[in-house]
């Protein structure tokens, strides 16, 4: 199943994806982003929103 993944080497923890997520599926901690995969609809808005391109919607996850 497709999942949103954050590349920690790219992410600046700015919160743009968190505030822009239409489903409030994301949370900004001080140095990480958490995605609630049960709430996430894989719409891909966050992938486009991220100013630095740190997010990917791809095949991943356990």
């Amino acid at each position: 199943m497709k999942r949103v993944a954050c590349d920690r080497n790219v992410c600046l923890y700015c919160g743009t994806c968190v505030g822009g997520c239409p489903f409030e599926a994301m949370t900004l901690f001080s140095t990480w982003i958490e995605v609630d995969h049960d709430v996430c609809t894989r719409c891909g808005v966050c992938v486009k929103l991220c100013p630095v391109g740190a997010l990917t919607l791809g095949e991943a996850g356990p």
Binding site: V45, V47, K48, C50, P51, V52, G53
Partner: peptide, 12 residues
């Protein structure tokens, strides 16, 4: 504007 973004990394 977010509605003008088409793909990953567009802002940069």
């Amino acid at each position: 504007g977010a509605h003008r973004l088409r793909k990953k990394g567009d802002v940069r």
